[in-house]
Amino acid sequence: MFFHIILERNMQLHPRHFGPRLRDKLVSKLMKDVEGTCSGRHGFVVAIMGIEHVGKGLIRDGTGFVTFPVKYKCVVFRPFKGEILEAVVTMVNKMGFFAEAGPVQVFVSNHLIPDDMEFQSADTPNYTTSDNSVKIQKDSEVRLKIIGTRVDATEIFCIGTIKDDFLGVISDPGAAS
């Protein structure tokens, strides 16, 4: 799920940037540092929407670096248990398949794939129904439900299922060609 929240971060700025464009430099450094990172608490920071407030800088003894407390608005993505996501399959093996829903990686193990889909170890490993009507392979798009999340300080990993109503392949690259 996506959230629009305000976060705070202490930015350290090198003294060489102290000039008329200090603020711009601060913002661009913030974007470079923060966007694409993941915190277990808030999820993946997708984009910074703007700066809310820049506090008074504090000069560090010895180094000359200055620490600014910066409040910024950003969009975060945090997967939850029970959430339905659309994901792109990245890897298929006999244990199941991996898929990516934006920044988050999801693993669907083979016992959470419908029983009528069998693993086929061809040159492109895939899961196929007996009548060949549905095929899951690399780059397939699937709709899945998250049934478990593992949230570390800097990493979120999910496991999902497609063994439920209205889940499964939503577009098949093989079918289009």
Binding site: G96, Q105, F107, I147, T149, F157, I159
Partner: peptide, 22 residues
């Protein structure tokens, strides 16, 4: 249906869950 698959190492009996898959 919605339980997390567990894996086991036959040699050292170490257990893993699907969450460790990555």
């Amino acid at each position: 249906k919605n339980t997390i698959q567990e894996y086991i190492c036959p040699n050292c009996n170490k257990r893993y869950t699907a969450l460790d898959a990555a």
